[in-house]
């Protein structure tokens, strides 16, 4: 084992000089379709994956995807295990205190409640949401009881199992769940716009990287290619646009 660590350490020591082009390690959850997911071939796929493959090309950096759990993303970014978070993370004042964000590449998200019973009490009942999300933050401020889960899928499963009255999540994530449930799930209540849009999370000290990606995002907004991608992944005409 020590030998393995030593070998890795030697690799680490000799590898540094060889890279001519900067490698940016991007963390994603891989469990948040259509933003990011692991497709059946085992590759990261989704709106954000396609978007950042283009952005990295425009910014002339080599990007590498790292799948990691949602809950530890901000601490892992801060301790340098990767360089950026691309995981449908909404820009919020609380998160801004810890990390920086690029310009948004998705407008303020709409979140919605889904339940199995059209009369479900989402206002004061038990509502499930993914832990440390903008939705969980919102529910915590309402009169409802918040139940947190590590993945969005488990938050949905909680309603199915009867542990929660309703699930509160990004409506883009919930839409296929509700549409394909064959009437099992229905929308309840009003959709709510939360946050300042989705951006790429960066360490506060990485100002250059932020500028690079800001520029690339702006260029995709200017030539309409970002809007095209949004239409491709988020239901054509109904897709949010810049």
């Amino acid at each position: 084992m020590k030998k393995l660590i030593l070998t890795t350490a030697i690799l680490a020591l000799t590898g540094g000089a060889a890279s001519a082009q900067q490698v940016v390690r991007l963390a994603t959850e891989g469990a948040y379709p259509p933003f990011n997911f692991i497709n059946d071939a085992g590759e990261p796929d989704g709106f954000e994956i396609e978007l950042f493959d283009t952005l990295c090309e425009r910014a002339e950096v080599t990007c590498e995807w790292v799948t990691t759990d949602w809950d530890g993303m901000i601490p892992n970014l801060q301790s340098g295990n990767f360089d950026g978070i691309v995981a449908g993370m909404s820009i919020t004042p609380e998160r801004r205190e810890a990390i920086d964000f690029t310009a948004s590449y998705y407008p303020a998200i709409t979140s919605a409640y889904a339940a199995m019973d059209p009369d479900a009490d989402f206002a004061t009942g038990v509502v499930s949401a993914q832990v440390n999300t903008i939705q969980a933050g919102h529910i915590a401020e309402t009169d409802a009881t918040l139940l947190e889960y590590t993945t969005p899928d488990e938050a949905v499963a909680a309603v199915r199992n009867g542990e929660a009255d309703a699930v509160f999540a990004d409506s883009d994530y919930l839409k296929p769940v509700v549409d394909e449930s064959g009437g099992e799930f229905v929308w309840v209540g009003e959709a709510i716009a939360l946050g300042e849009g989705i951006g790429m999370g960066l360490r506060k000290s990485d100002t250059e990287l932020k500028a690079t990606f800001d520029e690339a995002i702006d260029s995709m907004k200017a030539d309409g290619s970002l809007n095209e991608l949004l239409q491709k992944w988020f239901g054509g005409e109904e897709a949010p646009q810049f």
Partner: peptide, 29 residues
């Protein structure tokens, strides 16, 4: 500094440019 762990790129184990497999082996090790 300010909640961040800022070892310079040359000090990273494995280096950021290493292929994903090396990162996985390192984590496993």
């Amino acid at each position: 500094q300010a909640g961040e762990f800022r070892a310079c790129p040359a000090a990273k184990i494995p280096p950021g440019s290493a292929p994903p497999a090396i990162h996985q082996i390192y984590n496993f090790a």
